[in-house]
Write a protein that binds this DNA or RNA. Sequence first.
DNA 1: GATGAATGAGCATTCATTCAT
DNA 2: CATGAATGAATGCTCATTCAT
Lengths: 199, 199, 199, 199
Amino acid sequence: MGKIDENKKKKKEALFNTAYELFTTKGINSTAISDIVEKAGVAKGTFYLYFKDKYDIKNKLVVHKARELFHSAGDSLAAAGVHGLEDQLIYIIDHVINALMENKPLLNFISKNLVMGALRSTLITGENSDDDIYDRFLELVSQDDYSYTDINVMLFTIVELAGSAAYNSILYEEPLPFEEYKPFLYRSVRLIIKSHRVP
Amino acid sequence: MGKIDENKKKKKEALFNTAYELFTTKGINSTAISDIVEKAGVAKGTFYLYFKDKYDIKNKLVVHKARELFHSAGDSLAAAGVHGLEDQLIYIIDHVINALMENKPLLNFISKNLVMGALRSTLITGENSDDDIYDRFLELVSQDDYSYTDINVMLFTIVELAGSAAYNSILYEEPLPFEEYKPFLYRSVRLIIKSHRVP
Amino acid sequence: MGKIDENKKKKKEALFNTAYELFTTKGINSTAISDIVEKAGVAKGTFYLYFKDKYDIKNKLVVHKARELFHSAGDSLAAAGVHGLEDQLIYIIDHVINALMENKPLLNFISKNLVMGALRSTLITGENSDDDIYDRFLELVSQDDYSYTDINVMLFTIVELAGSAAYNSILYEEPLPFEEYKPFLYRSVRLIIKSHRVP
Amino acid sequence: MGKIDENKKKKKEALFNTAYELFTTKGINSTAISDIVEKAGVAKGTFYLYFKDKYDIKNKLVVHKARELFHSAGDSLAAAGVHGLEDQLIYIIDHVINALMENKPLLNFISKNLVMGALRSTLITGENSDDDIYDRFLELVSQDDYSYTDINVMLFTIVELAGSAAYNSILYEEPLPFEEYKPFLYRSVRLIIKSHRVP
DNA sequence: GATGAATGAGCATTCATTCAT
DNA sequence: CATGAATGAATGCTCATTCAT
């Protein structure tokens, strides 16, 4: 029993990891399922035991990676003793962006496939009850010295700006390499946060 | 012969228009070249006379549509007597976004395929000499009562924020339908512009 | 244990019934063994414990259903006090056809898969010793006021004509709906019977 | 032009003939499209240029072969100076059956795949205007010394009986080899014809 | 230039069958 | 007896691309 379940998990993870590797190196369109199973060392039929098709595994992969990223940032924030919403959000953004800068394949993969709606559902509407990222964010807001209005709008605006600008600045180094663009981005983020403060 | 050239142009345009129609309705991946030529009423071989492959025609289509959009906005701005950089940029953004709101297939098509690098090349670095969009922008900046630093950074930040946020707000109505989100977006844009002013 | 044997029988019957249901609704070609076991609630391997493959279960099913049909007709004939071979055979044919008319999936299934040889073996040559259908038929013949020659030929001709004509008339209503075609069919059957009488 | 069309026809016919050969020798289910194209010496894609799928080519094949058979019988009848509807119909049946007896693969192929509805449409309802088999039959009926009622019913009954009985008698030699069964069959057919005569 | 028949590599998906537990 | 995870051969079908006319 335990042995079988263990084996199942092993195969599923082998497929998961292999798919991620191939998607990020060869691109999704150019990755055939036969590539995945071959590299993962399982039979073709086994793939269909665990995933519906290529897009099923892709979506699960994207969500998984995005979660990892934000949880890591959240954990790091908790460890660092940062105070004040502004600094805290900048800290999280910085953490996520730094992780992506050092992992451009992941940056590319996430950016191209993260149907924003999915992430937004998680981050902003907090629909996914077993996921506390949004809750952590709300907590940060409530603990700040200031009060804020239209919190969801604020979060949305920041995520869109940071996500889009960082993606392009990192990958294309235009209009500036990200390190140089960073101060501008964070200044804008701070302005947006402040504009949501209740006086 | 003028007649022959005309005919050539006609076929090319038929392919161009048909491709756009199919890409926006069926999606690019699901559109085969045979679909395009069939609907356009030309032979399969003819396609390869004018375009290298599906992605060639796609890219040309994206640039073409994006150009149309900005030129229309620029023309409209010239007609309206708007003064001050802030109001002028808001005017342009508003014009483009309104056009996209009324044409969601176009919004989708542009957003998914506009490799930002391409547009940025056009809009921001002005590389493309026969295209005056960037020049018009520079002119607006120079004519303003205030002076600005890091103009490219400013333009980049605005384009990323407005593009990304508008896209998601329009299509998914999250966190708010765009009409309701608009005031927040424009407030943020104005803040960004102001932050680039030389005191 | 009786309990174990019962359980065994239960599983086999579940497979049998489920296969019949799926064969008649989805067709044999479109029914996979996995469909059968899934619906029957048994494991895939269990199927191979009782049947060799899809065609094994199909054949057993056809014979089973055909037997049921004729036995029911024979029983009914015994209950009704019909006299004379002509009327008796018409009675049986009518009984079988009526049952099939009210169960078109069965009609379809039987007709498409009843390799006539199999039924003929049963009905005409009486090979299958534990099956008394043929014997009952011989008895009817012997009890009639008339004598008959080439009894097997007669039975064969009647079965072929009635089976084929009824099948098409019922399913396609061509050249007439069966109810209207019936008098013609039965007239022909009576002529065939009479033609085998010894003067 | 002529050359191209000629070539097209050649390929289509190669596929047609090869498919027939494989269907009759290996069976339809066991014949893969790759088998057909390989043996026909064309590329896989070419198959789909001319036929939708395996069942498309099968249906076209069945109709084609059935037509050939009846036309040949009709032509032969015209050449032989047979008089009287009874003898004429027997002549046609005999001609068709003889052809099938000498070509058992064809007998098998036709019998298993000729959706009777299709043939009946042709033979009995005469829908297919460019096919004169039914017309020829009507002509024979009208030229006979006797008058007949319910002609379609008569034709249908004969076709069903002869088709079904001959098929089984030829292939399985049960209850008798066809040559021995033939007199019985034809006697029945004559009885059926006579039963439709107007006195 | 224009055509469209032909190509054939490429790929997703299914499914009967096995066998370790 | 029963299970169901794993297999991988088999196959239908698509489609970009070429090239003789």
